[in-house]
């Protein structure tokens, strides 16, 4: 659906993109992840034909963004960063304007406006001027505008920025729902957002793609260390040495003890069955195991590692 091939973009002396390539398939929800200034927004501006790349090619739904910008734009619904909207227009007039610009016949447009208003929960706001609405409602208007012409592809630049937790959940649910049929690209620097909504994440840092994969795959790419937290009722020094004796264990860290039970974080290299080994060791000694919890690398760790 979207094919980006080695695009670069400079703003004066600043090198915003230094050769970005990726492919996005139909029906995927992909998260662009990266620190501020990594090149997420620039990539989106190129895909929506707001500005061209300096070198490299990008095709959207089979159309080149440089040669066929109008065909590309027809197929994309775009929510730009910060949801820029005409604040002196009432919501319904604004949606009407966008719908007309998108060549939706007037009968169909009236029906579509009703549908997107319902989808984005704008019923209470339709008659108001956009300028009077709260940030969360404006974000919804931006989303409604992008959905109006039933595009195959949605490009959302930080769709949940500035929203409260309830609104964030609503917007994420909405994106998930839309993503069942459509291809969605969203950018964010909020990591849980990716785990919550995306099938796949593309991590961009300093104008380059540094990693790509499902959130699970990315987490596995972490430090390669797995660790478990154990809580055992038993003599502390003996427990510690017994745990350290398990094959593959690299470190046993003593944690604060709770209710007289000793707690440890046991780290090992690529030992898949570490929890099992720990369990067997403890049972063999006849100690009481009160907690056993596996701690994988989090997406935060991976992100911090990759975007250093």
């Amino acid at each position: 659906m979207i094919q980006v091939d080695n695009i670069t973009k400079n703003y004066g002396r600043t090198r915003a993109l230094r050769g970005v390539s990726f492919t996005i398939n139909k029906g995927e929800i992909v998260g662009f992840l990266g620190p501020n200034g990594a090149g997420k927004t620039t990539t989106m501006k190129i895909l929506t034909c707001y500005m061209p790349a300096d070198t490299g090619t990008a095709t959207v739904a089979g159309f080149d963004v440089f040669d066929n910008p109008l065909e590309v734009r027809k197929r994309i619904g775009y929510l730009a960063e910060g949801a820029p909207l005409y604040h002196d227009m009432p919501v319904v007039d604004f949606l009407k304007f966008v719908g007309q610009m998108r060549n939706i016949p007037s009968g169909r447009l009236r029906q579509r406006i009703g549908e997107v208003v319902l989808m984005t929960g704008l019923q209470k706001a339709v008659g108001k001027n956009i300028g009077e609405l709260s940030k969360g409602y404006r974000q919804r208007v931006g989303l409604a505008q992008a959905l109006l012409h039933e595009p195959d592809i949605l490009i959302l630049d930080e769709p949940t920025s500035g929203l409260d937790p309830n609104q964030i959940k609503e917007i994420r649910d909405l994106i998930r729902e839309i993503g069942r049929e459509k291809t969605v690209i969203l950018s964010t620097h909020i990591l849980p957002e990716v785990t919550a909504t995306c099938d796949r994440a593309i991590i961009i840092s300093d104008g380059r793609v540094v990693a790509s994969g499902t959130p699970q795959e990315l987490m596995n790419r972490g430090t390669g260390q797995s660790s478990v937290v154990v809580q055992v009722r038993g003599p502390k020094p003996e427990v510690e040495s017994a745990l350290a004796a398990i094959s593959g264990v690299t470190a046993v860290e003593s944690l604060e003890s709770v209710n007289g039970a000793a707690r440890f974080r046991v780290s090992a290299g690529q030992t898949k069955d570490l929890p099992e080994q720990v369990f067997k060791t403890v049972v063999a000694k006849n100690w009481v195991l009160t907690e056993l919890r596996s701690e994988g690398a989090t997406l935060e760790d991976v992100f911090a590692e990759l975007t250093k």
Binding site: T48, C49, L70, P84, H87, V98, M101, N103
Partner: peptide
Amino acid sequence: KTGTEELLMTLPVR
């Protein structure tokens, strides 16, 4: 100033 240029110029218009 308000960034709506981006909204306008990414609609299918020349």
